[in-house]
Each structure stands twice: as C-alpha cells, then as structure tokens.
Simulated assay, not measured.
Amino acid sequence: MTESRRRFLRRAGAALSVASLGGCLSGGNEPTPTDGSDATTGGDGGSEGTPTPEPGAEPTATRTDAPTATASVSYFPTTTGEFAAWLPTPRGAGVPKPGGYVFLSTAPAPLFDNREHLDDRLSGALRFDSMLHGIDDSAGIRSATTVPGGWYTFETPFDREAVAAAYREDGLTADGSHRGFDLLSSDDAGVVALGDDRIVLAPESSTALDGSRRSRVATVIDAGTGNAQRYGEADPDFGRLVDALGSHHSALGLSHERGANFADAVATGKAYRFGPERTRVRAAVVFAEGAVRESAVASWAADADAFRGNAVATTTNGRAVVADALVPTAGVSKLRTTVPAPDDGTATPTVE
C-alpha cells in the first residue's frame, strides 16, 4: 500500500468535512474546535437586516441598532437534513465517560453548485483530490459528518462494486457485512463501510473512543438505519440543539456539562446557511430547565466576532436561545470550527 493510501482514512475525512468548506487543515490533523473566540471572515460590518426567525420561535430581544423590518432572504438548497440520524448515543459510540461528543456537519455539493456567489478563497477550497475511493472530490458530497477522533460519514453517489475492488487492491480485506453495508478493513488503515450512496469510516487514528473501530462503524450504521437509539433521542438537550441549529450548510455543536461555557448552558453550537447575497450565521445555546438566560446570549452576541459587527437578533424557543445575523455571502472566506462562548467560558469541544 502506498503511503498516500495508508494515510487516506486518517486524513480524508477531516479534509473533506472541513477543508471543503474553507477550514485550512495541514498535516492530516483532525479538526478540534478549541475555544469560544468563534470568528467568520465576513463583511466589513454594518447593518445587514434582521434574519427571519425559525418557525415557532418568538423574537424576544434584538440589538438596539438592528432594523425593525424582517429581511426576506433566499438560501441555497441544503442536503444535511438527515445528518443527526447518523449520530449514535455517546455510550454506544464508546465515549469513555459521561458526556457527549462534538460533531461537524457540512454540505459541500450545494455550495460548489453555487460557487459563483462565494468568495474565491472559499470556492477554491471546494475542489481538491479527496484521496478517498468513491469520492473524486468534494463537489460530489451531498453531506458529510465528522466526529473528531471517532468516525466520518459521507452521502455521495459512487459505484459500490468498483470502489470495493479499489480498496481491496490497496490491501483492505472484506470484513463481512452489516445491515446492507459491505465492510472492509486493515490494521493500518481502519474500517470502511460501503452502502448505497453512503460511506462510513473509522480511520486508524480514531483512538479517542472505547471499543473497536468495526463495532463503532456498526453502531453508526445501526443508528443511521433506524436500528439503534440516536444521540438526539437519548439526550433531549442535544436534540434541542439540533433543532435550534436548523437547516445549514455547515454546523457544529455538542452537549456538555452544565455551565461549561454560558452559565447554566447544557448544549452549544453554531451554523452557517448560505444564500446568493447573504449568509445566516447562527449561534444556538440550550439551557437547563428553568435557567434560560437569553440576556447572556444577547450580551455576548452584541460584540461577538462571529457576527462581524452585523445586526444580531436573539430569539427564545423553549430552553433554546438562538442568535442570528446576516452577513454578506461574498465576504465569507473561511469557516472556523469553534463554538460560541463568553470571554470567561471554559468549553473546549473535543471528544470527551
């Protein structure tokens, strides 16, 4: 096996899920969101209008300089609607202690299809050699989900028999089947599962979780095919976070200990939804029962780098608080994998 193929399972997932949307990774390192500094290269500031709240959410606070009129925004199609189905429970995934894990969800194909509206630096990152059989480049990936240190899933069309043969030629061997997926593995590359338009893989470097890589892949497949409980079903806080993040082209988040960043917060995330002219940047924070602190999120959002000085609207829906801003699409040149947190926050989303 060539060295490039030997590293493909360690590198390709992180590269495709994040670098395809402009996150610059080097040396094959997996993306690890680190702090609450959360920055998106957006416009030069100024008011861009108040985004439309998601259905069912009641606007309860808005930055004083935000326009009162509700902006009408057009967005590109999204293909990430089923991403949460492929996230099993933390316990099933092998998280070694109580807690959750961080996810990154992306939709490269819709962005590539609309690349003429994007900053050249972001659109330029959308096309590259994936080094992964079954995916010529990121332009064909309808959706991808990364769990750093754990596994990757890709929804993309491919020739299943030809791809399996290519992996066997690289030294992977057949390792049985599971719920309609063909599994191949090797000691120095990890495990790859091939389904119909779906690839699930656990690379050799995925050692942050307990259990074997094969059992982890099987657990992901069980969740994705509806044969095992999912993260959002087992953890209502995580389920609320997924709902609050809404439709997106890029999102990340996790559930965590109470107060790990915002006081009394139990889950935190961020999402981008791109359109021809404007992109919605959203921060979502889920609080413990009876402890919703919209004012804390609004205060943070007023000066957060994530929104680049654009008008921010905050809404509360149950225990979830959402902060939205619209930024010029043409000014978004890179996406950063960090979650919202106040200056004194301590959340560091990694595989716990």
Rank of each mutant, 00 (worst) to 15 (best):
R216G: 02
T173Y: 08
D243F: 01
N261C: 13
R91D: 15
A234V: 08
L111V: 05
V322C: 05
G56C: 10
A341H: 07
S185L: 12
L25Q: 12
S299G: 09
A306V: 01
V95N: 01
A202W: 04
A284P: 07
V332S: 02
G150I: 08
A228G: 03
A189P: 00
R336Q: 14
V332D: 01
Y101N: 11
D243S: 11
D344S: 06
L25R: 10
D324S: 00
G99Q: 09
T145C: 03
T337G: 15
P67S: 13
S105R: 09
K270P: 04
R282V: 04
T316H: 02
A302R: 13
F128E: 00
P340D: 01
K97P: 00
A347H: 15
G36V: 09
A202S: 15
S4R: 14
A162S: 13
P157N: 06
A301D: 02
A228D: 11
T350P: 01
D38P: 10
R240G: 11
G195C: 04
A189K: 08
P67R: 11
Y167T: 05
T316M: 02
S212Y: 06
F154Y: 12
L126Y: 03
A166Y: 03
G190A: 08
P328I: 05
G224W: 06
G224D: 05
R11H: 15
E169M: 13
A165K: 11
E116M: 09
T315G: 01
S333G: 05
K97T: 12
D303P: 00
T329C: 09
S250W: 14
M1F: 12
K270D: 05
P31N: 03
R6Y: 09
T145M: 09
G253T: 11
A244S: 11
L87P: 00
I199H: 02
S185H: 10
T268H: 04
P67Q: 06
A165V: 11
S143G: 11
T348W: 10
E3P: 01
T279W: 14
T32E: 14
E204S: 08
T70Y: 08
R198T: 10
F154M: 07
A323C: 00
V242T: 13
V102W: 05
L87F: 05
T314G: 02
P90R: 04
V281M: 11
D175T: 05
A291L: 10
V286P: 06
L25D: 11
G13A: 03
V266Q: 08
R293I: 09
A267V: 08
H256G: 06
S143I: 03
H256L: 02
P236L: 06
D343N: 10
T2K: 14
D222I: 09
R293L: 12
G226L: 04
